[in-house]
């Protein structure tokens, strides 16, 4: 008896959140993150995030994909589809542009128009002006940009530190599980947390 009202309350809260997000315009909606990264970082639309490892990039995209949104990967020639699948990314709702060439900025802008989370691996330097144009686009289109590499202005920077692999010895076993210390830098604030990745 008690579980049902609780469930209903949660549903109502969820619906209210969605109504609010519709009323408040497209900026600053929250995008779900993967349970492993829960509490470490909260993705918000209209902002960009930087990561320094492929795994973290996949992890940030995984939450939205698990929630039924479309995600895209640009400039990522060595995309590990099986790893993405293990993170829970639905490959049928994934757009991959392995080699956008010189037009990577334009391609990213076009993908941002329609996808919820776009992971970009820049193939060249980006200046602050182009980045701010892209940021404006992000805000207008309510999507999230995850940059694997350098980016002039980001909401938060996630870096992987101190990876510890279990299950592997010297000549025996196999890679099994990875413990990772992830540091999040927001402006000058910095926090770190140890995670066990799936």
């Amino acid at each position: 008896m008690s579980a049902q009202p609780l469930e209903a309350v949660a549903t109502v809260a969820d619906l209210q959140r969605r109504i609010e997000s519709l009323q408040g315009g497209p900026t600053r909606l929250t995008v779900p993150v993967h349970p492993v990264l829960e509490g470490l970082v909260q993705l918000r639309t209209g902002t960009s995030y930087a990561v320094d490892s492929a795994t973290l990039a996949l992890g940030l995209a995984a939450g939205a994909s698990r929630a039924g949104e479309w995600v895209g990967f640009a400039g990522w020639g060595d995309f590990g589809a099986e790893a993405a699948d293990q993170w829970g990314i639905d490959l049928r709702r994934t757009v991959l542009v392995p080699d956008p060439g010189d037009l990577w900025l334009e391609v990213t802008a076009a993908l941002v128009d329609v996808l919820k989370v776009v992971v970009l691996k820049p193939t060249g330097q980006v200046d602050a002006k182009s980045a701010s144009i892209l940021d404006a686009r992000l805000r207008a289109r309510s999507s999230v940009l995850v940059v694997w590499g350098e980016w002039p202005r980001v909401e938060a920077r996630l870096s992987a530190e101190q990876a510890v692999w279990s299950g592997v010895g010297r000549g025996r076993g196999r890679l099994d599980q990875r413990g990772l210390r992830v540091a999040v830098t927001r402006g000058t604030r910095r926090s770190a947390r140890d995670l066990v990745l799936p």
């Binding site: 490959l91 757009v95 128009d113």
Partner: peptide
Amino acid sequence: VTRGVARVQAMIGFDAVRTPV
């Protein structure tokens, strides 16, 4: 999404946009 991706295809070519399987 279909339409947006079609724009990307118009930019860099039909083959350049992939779906991983």
